[in-house]
């Protein structure tokens, strides 16, 4: 119970800070919409989007916006060395990790809730075709991306080149997640949708989530001990 309380306390703190500054929400949203808008000029010709472009651009926007949010979230913990204060408190280290993860997930959910309709609008993507499956793909993909990203962002907090290093270490590991997300979403958006295939990609994402989350919870304590 104390574990869950700690997770919620840390996540709520992050959300209160974000609600006041709105720094992350505005920057990530502006960045994600810019990405989608710029790509729409290349991949939508005479009102018709290229095959699978919507799925790819949606996930690129999520990955880039997520990286931006990760960096800034942990920059806040670095400014007055508050991550050290969290590590000094008598709470289990995985609870700190999960608290940061939940805060980030909620922020990314807000961003996705706004960019998915924009992608639908600009690329004529059929968002209503299998809404629950699409939601599942987005949720599972975002969870996996944020799970790995939260771990790396925390590990890199003291590195001088953290802003450069984060995408360098994050993208190679999350490539399978992004590919699964793109293929699953493309299976829904295709002219001849294959929902069974989308479900298979969703299963793969859930598998990745389980692996990444387990590993991150396992290693967060030891890697933050030094």
């Amino acid at each position: 119970m104390q574990f869950l309380r700690t997770v919620l306390t840390i996540a709520r703190k992050d959300l209160v800070i974000e609600a006041r500054s709105r720094e992350l929400a505005y920057t990530t949203l502006f960045f994600a919409i810019s990405v989608v808008l710029v790509f729409s000029f290349s991949f939508v010709v005479e009102g018709v989007a290229l095959t699978d472009a919507a799925a790819g651009i949606l996930w690129v926007a999520i990955a880039f916006a997520g990286t931006l949010a990760l960096g800034r979230t942990f920059e806040r913990e670095r400014q007055a060395d508050t991550l050290k204060a969290l590590l000094l408190s008598p709470v289990e280290r995985p609870a700190i990790y999960l608290g940061k993860l939940v805060g980030l997930l909620l922020l990314m959910t807000v961003v996705e809730a706004l960019i998915v309709p924009v992608v639908g609008l600009l690329f004529q993507a059929p968002l209503g075709r299998a809404p629950w499956l699409l939601t599942g793909l987005l949720a599972a993909g975002t969870l996996g991306f944020a799970a790995v990203g939260t771990l790396f962002a925390a590990m890199l907090i003291r590195a001088h080149s953290r802003d450069v290093l984060l995408p360098v270490v994050l993208y190679p590991i999350t490539v399978p997640l992004v590919i699964a997300g793109v293929r699953g979403t493309a299976s829904i958006f295709a002219a001849e949708p294959n929902l069974a295939m989308a479900q298979a990609w969703l299963s793969m994402l859930v598998f990745f989530d389980a692996v990444f989350l387990t590993l991150a919870l396992w290693v967060f304590g030891p890697v933050m001990s030094e």
Partner: peptide
């Protein structure tokens, strides 16, 4: 610490309450 372990965007009361909950 030399860095003060305080969240600048939280009030004095909220900072204390946050750490109090963690403890």
């Amino acid at each position: 610490g030399h860095d003060l372990f305080l969240y600048g965007d939280l009030s004095a009361r909220e900072n204390l309450a946050f750490f109090g909950r963690l403890y």
